[in-house]
Structure formats: C-alpha cells, structure tokens
Design a protein around this nucleic acid. Structure first.
Ligand SMILES: [Zn+2]
Ligand SMILES: [Zn+2]
Ligand SMILES: [Zn+2]
Ligand SMILES: [Zn+2]
Lengths: 132, 132
DNA sequence: ATTGCACACGTTATAGCATAACGCAATTGA
DNA sequence: TCAATTGCGTTATGCTATAACGTGTGCAAT
C-alpha cells in the first residue's frame, strides 16, 4: 500500500501519534487536537481509518489505542504479521515481527482452509525498566 | 488454576457461553439472562471476571466478546499461548495453540527482558465454509 | 456469642469507545 | 455540465466497561 498525500486532518492525527511516547486512544487524540479545531470523535476516527489503511498507524486491539508504525518503509508489513509488546506500566510499545511465527500461523490456517484477513499479536506485560 | 464451584451467576453466564454457537458480548449475555433476573451489566462482568480467572472462558480482544474454552481440562493452557481464528462472517471461533509460536514469542520477550503477563493471538478472516 | 473479614450480589450512575445519519463543499473525470 | 467520489463538520446514538455505594451471608478468631 503506497501512502498518498495526507489530508489536513490525517496529518494532524498522524503527527500527534508520531510525537507521542506511547499509544493513544481516539479520545485522547481528540483532546490534543481541540486547539486545532477538532470537535468530534468522528474527525479522529475518520482520519485513523485512512492511516490504518495506509499502514502508517497500527491499532492495538487489547487496549483500544493507536500507535504510529515503528518501521515506516519497512517491507515486512507486506509479507509478515506484526507483533507488539505493550508495557502495562509505562505504556511503551515495541513493534516486531518474526517470520517463523508468521509461517506457523499461516501453516495452521492453510491446513484449516481458513482465509485470514487481519491478525493480531499483542503481548502485554512489563518492560525491562518497569519490571525491575 | 483449579476451578472452584461456580456461583449461581457464574454458572448462568458460563452456561450461556457454552451453549452459544460463537462468541458473545457481555451485553448479549445480559439480554439472554434477563429472564433469570439479570438486570445490570455488572452482574455479567463480575461473573466473566471470575470465569476468565478460572480459565474456563476466553476474552476475544479484537471483537470485545467472550467464548467458552474449547479445550477444558487441557493442560496446554498452563504452558502455552492460546490462539484463535475468528470467522467474520459466521462468527465461528477455532481455538488452537502452537508450541513453536509460543517458543518464538517467548524467546523474543526474553531477549528484550520483557516480562509477559497476557498474550493475545487472534486471526480474523473467513472460515472454510464462508470463504467458498 | 460477638466481632471482623471476605466474598458474592444488586443497584445506580458514570466513564470510555465507536458509529449512524444527515448535509455541505471540493475534486475529478466523463 | 453532470455525476461520482472524497473529505469534512455536526448531532445524535449505541455499545463497552467500571466506579461507588450498600446489602447479606458464611466463616473464622477472639
Ligand atoms: Zn508497523
Ligand atoms: Zn514499562
Ligand atoms: Zn481454552
Ligand atoms: Zn464462517
């Protein structure tokens, strides 16, 4: 998926996510953009929908939040499943991928004749700093 | 985790999930139990909290729903990560585990000194019947 | 027996997440 | 020009989850 020129709202939302230390909820993004004219959740959700489609933002299903892609331009997104480790203490997110994990999961779905559309791998726990 | 005797509310919620064809949201469970005296979401959520703790019910993070464990008594839950394939058309859920996937993910977190607490693997797509 | 505690439960209210439905404006392409 | 598409703004609504308070019950420890 090639990324087209972002619209004004899409750029605003993306900038907020890129500058954030960790994942943000849609409503947190909304609050951060009120000074820029944002008034309603849909303005955020519509921008996020496109950013997710372009692959420059990821949704963390287990915490209802969004994060900027940590590997922009990396082609791993096109041929692999992305995984996340989320610190429940400081909110830090690590994005990674593992081809062997991809292969095993895809082998399983192929055996079941299941047709995958979207795969979520999220590990919640404590990062090194917070676990100490 | 050994499962203690379930309370009345816990049993009601568990029975609904066991008899269901697929995953149910907390509010769907609530509706199904109104005839049994359920009036408020908390009655469902409190029961679910315990059932999740006992490991007899799983939460599907990507669709905000709950499902009865497909492998009751199986010891794989105690030493492996459970994965789900969820059909977005018919709602059917397949629960499985793969030791190699577990191993790879745990190797990664160990290398990062990340301390995992709860891992989610959910594949959404179309089951064999619905993909035809 | 009385006290203290843990636990399940019921109720009301509130917080947090996401989308439906309407209309308008700008862009594009036939 | 006309139609189709896309983005945008607004209002309203629906869905998901928890906070806070109080009740009752069972079961020790004193
Ligand atoms: Zn990414
Ligand atoms: Zn941390
Ligand atoms: Zn299970
Ligand atoms: Zn299906």
């Amino acid at each position: 998926m090639t990324t087209p020129q972002l619209t004004k709202n899409q750029s605003l939302v993306f900038d907020v996510l890129e500058k954030a230390e960790g994942p943000l909820s849609a409503y947190t993004i909304l609050d951060k953009l009120r000074d820029h004219g944002f008034r309603a959740p849909l303005q955020v959700y519509r921008a996020l929908e496109k950013l997710l489609e372009y692959g420059v933002v990821h949704r963390l299903e287990s915490i209802n939040s969004f994060v900027a892609c940590a590997h922009p331009g990396d082609d791993c997104h096109s041929h692999g499943i992305v995984a996340f480790a989320i610190c429940e203490s400081c909110g830090q997110v690590m994005e990674f991928h593992d081809h062997e994990v991809d292969h095993r999961l895809m082998a399983w779905v192929r055996a079941q004749k299941f047709k995958p559309e979207k795969t979520t791998i999220e590990i919640r726990g404590l990062c090194e700093a917070c676990a100490a």
